[in-house]
Amino acid sequence: MNIINLLIKYKHYYLVGVKITLLLSFLSLIFGTTLGSLLSLLKLSKYKIPKALSTVYIEVVRGTPMMVQIALVYFGSYVMIGMDISGFAAALIAVSLNSAAYVAEIIRSGIQSIDKGQMEASRSLGISERQTMRYIILPQAVKNILPALGNEFVTLIKETSVASTIGVADLMYASKIVQSNSFQPFNPLIIVAGIYFLFTFTLSQLIGVFERSLSHND
């Protein structure tokens, strides 16, 4: 009962939090996936320099905590570009850059998991490398990539909660405000946990449906 009362009383904070968290997740997902796809292409490239650059980027990003990265972007923006950026912008940049590294690895391993013979059979028929990628390799790789990418999106939604540490008014931040306003430490957290779960569960179900529609000819 208490939880529902809390939710109704402080619904304004939670609504703002939901909006910010969804917006941050959605935009980071778009930017992260785009950048991650590019990075995976660099990493698969025949040329040494792009390959090395993307490898270093991916290793560094995956080897440092998200909370450090977000603080680095937020507090480092003045040092780096000479102006302050908003907490939301800093969070968006940090989460996107972080997600890109994971997405890049997912796509790279998905593509490399396809038997080399597929590329050879296609090239031996005189089909160009680009067309082979598009019509032979990628359609098969997608089936490996999608489940892992779905997990990454779920992780991304949860990770955005770190944005609250630099004062972005997301869901996690809302729970902190409600905690201090209501003098209740526990129930506000139950509420945000429920909301996060609602988002991630819905997403993983949607991905599951999509996966099944792809696997009809296995």
């Binding site: 050879e120 059979a121 031996s124 028929l125 005189g126 098969q140």
Partner: peptide, 22 residues
């Protein structure tokens, strides 16, 4: 890149078939 044109005239069959499963 013109190698593709030559390959179009040379068929190859592999030990493990490598048909396109999709």
């Amino acid at each position: 890149n013109e190698i593709d044109k030559v390959r179009q005239q040379i068929g190859m069959v592999f030990q493990h078939f490598h048909l396109f499963p999709h």
